[in-house]
Each structure stands twice: as C-alpha cells, then as structure tokens.
C-alpha cells in the first residue's frame, strides 16, 4: 500500500529520502526482538530439517540396559549429552526430532488456517453485502466455539497423529485471519488503486490476487506468527494429555508427559523439553511482534 501511495508524482532528484523498503530494513536491523526471535526460529527450523544428520542416535532406539542416564553436567559423559529417558532412548536425539513435530504442526496448521481464513476474510471484505453477511456469520460461529475443547474431542474421535493434528488445528484456528483480512479488505476496496484496476478492466480474480492480497500479506504474516505459537502449545498440551502424537513419536509435549513420573527425582527430564517449547514459542512471538513493528511502525508497542 505504502509503495503505491508514495510513488505518485516523480520525486525531486535532489531530495534523497530512503525508500520505504530501505526504511523497513533499517528498522528490522535495529529491532532486537525480531533478530533474536528470527534467529532462534531459523535455527530450530534448520535443526528440524537436518535432524537425521544432527541427532547422535535414532530417537526410537531403546536400550533398556541404559535407562535414565543423567545428562553430561552430572556425569561428564558426552555419549548422551542430555542423558537418556526411561526406556534408554537418547534425550538429545528425541529433542531434535521433536522439533520436527512442533514445527510441522505449527506451520502446517498455520498454512491451512491462513489459507482458509484469508480467503473467507478477503471475499467478505472485498465483496461486502450478502457475501459479507455469510462471512461474518461464519466468523461469529467459529468465535463462539471453544477451540481447544473441540480439538480435544475431535482428536479423541479420529485418533492422534501429526496429520490429524495439522488438519484439526488448521481448521480450528482460521478465525483470526478471517477477522483481520476482512477488515483490511474492507478498508482497501474503496481505495484509488483498486478503482484504477477496475477502471482498466481487471477481473475480480486479478484484483483480489494482484492488488488486495499483497496489501494484506503483512497482516497475515503477523497473525500467522502468533497462531503458530498457539498451535505449538496446543499440540504440546494434547500430546501431554495423551491425545496428540502417539508414542514412541518424540513430541516435546509427549516427552513432558512421559517425564511426569520423574518430576521429583529427575526434573531435567521435564525441564529440557519444557524449555524447548518455551524458547520456540517465545521466539516465534518475538519474531511476530518484530515483524509487526517493522512493517507497521504506527502500531508499535
């Protein structure tokens, strides 16, 4: 939007103002939260992608003769850096593979929810009238539903697996995307550049995809960053409750659940996956906040 508005009359050659993109880059470079959050998220993503090369052991391979080995800071043994769990599986390897599940569920669900929500929201906001009434009705119905409770019941009906979780959570978290994209589309649809596009005879699809979508993309990304964090937490909670990913899959929530028995005796078994969830969620949130600050500085907090 900013691009289109600022680039109206030809700029005076002697005034060298930074372009909005340059300004954004400058803000991004000085934004500590964005840099920290982004780095952590990228790092975790890399760990997840290269898990087979990074993990020292097979995360499923149990060795009952080497159960509950303490981590390196207690034993000084670098063979199992984070020790082993109750079935003698390497904890570090499970943590590394667990990142895959968290990210897969988080990003997978966000992708579905983002697509569904944005389509609904943009259609409602752009077309208005009856279409919008239907969209508002759908959004209201969705907002009235208790998400986690429905997720719980659906997962217990269809059974837990990564695919099931991605689909269920994807179709349960689209409401926020719809709300935001709808109101942005509503604001934009009367703007000159849309009218101009219409005047030159662009089709509805062309207008929505070519003119509207690029202008709501920033909002979608910011919401996605918040939603990914929420979905990751829900996955952990469901797995903790025994409804999410099935053992022996190494999900962080499941690791916490399995370590519950050792809470008083081997607290590191809970603390390690707990810290991993905490770090990833806070990093995603910080990155999301940062993105919003950088792209829409007027809404900074």
């Amino acid at each position: 939007m900013t691009d289109a508005l600022v680039k109206g009359p030809a700029a005076e050659p002697e005034v060298i103002a930074p372009s909005p993109r340059e300004e954004m880059r400058r803000r991004a470079k000085s934004h500590v939260g964005l840099i920290f959050g982004g780095t952590v998220v990228i790092l975790v993503a890399l760990i997840a992608i290269f898990a087979p090369f990074l993990a020292p052991y097979d995360p499923y391979d149990q060795d009952l003769t080497r159960r509950l080995v303490d981590p390196v800071w207690k034993t000084g043994n670098w063979g199992n850096i984070l020790g082993t769990d109750a079935l003698g599986r390497d904890y570090l390897s499970r943590l590394i593979y667990g990142a895959r599940i968290s990210l897969m569920v988080g990003f997978g669900a966000a992708l579905i929810a983002g697509t569904v929500g944005s389509v609904i929201g943009i259609l409602g906001g752009y077309f208005g009238g009856r279409v919008d009434s239907v969209v508002v009705y759908l959004i209201n119905v969705k907002l009235a539903l208790p998400g986690l409770l429905i997720a719980l019941s659906l997962v217990s009906i269809v059974g837990g697996s990564v695919t099931a979780l991605v689909l269920i959570l994807g179709f349960l978290t689209w409401d926020r995307y719809a709300v935001v994209t709808r109101s942005v589309a509503q604001q934009l649809r009367g703007n000159d550049f849309i009218t101009a596009a219409r005047a030159v005879g662009a089709s509805q699809t062309r207008i929505i995809l070519g003119e509207l979508l690029p202008n709501v993309a920033n909002q979608i990304i910011v919401i996605a960053s918040l939603e990914i964090a929420i979905v990751i937490l829900i996955e952990a909670a469901l797995s903790f409750l025994g409804l999410g990913v099935k053992p022996p899959e190494p999900s962080w929530g499941l690791m916490i659940s399995e370590a519950r028995n050792f809470m008083f005796f081997k607290p590191h078994l809970i603390a390690i996956p707990g810290f991993a969830i905490f770090l990833l969620v806070i990093a995603i949130n910080m990155a999301g906040d940062g993105l919003r600050d950088v792209t829409a500085p007027e809404g900074r907090n």
Partner: peptide
C-alpha cells in the same frame, strides 16, 4: 507397552 513397542521396532 512403550518398552514392548521399542522391542518390536
């Protein structure tokens, strides 16, 4: 059950 699953694997 988890230990048995590990053995079967």
């Amino acid at each position: 059950a988890e230990a048995l699953a590990g053995e079967l694997r």
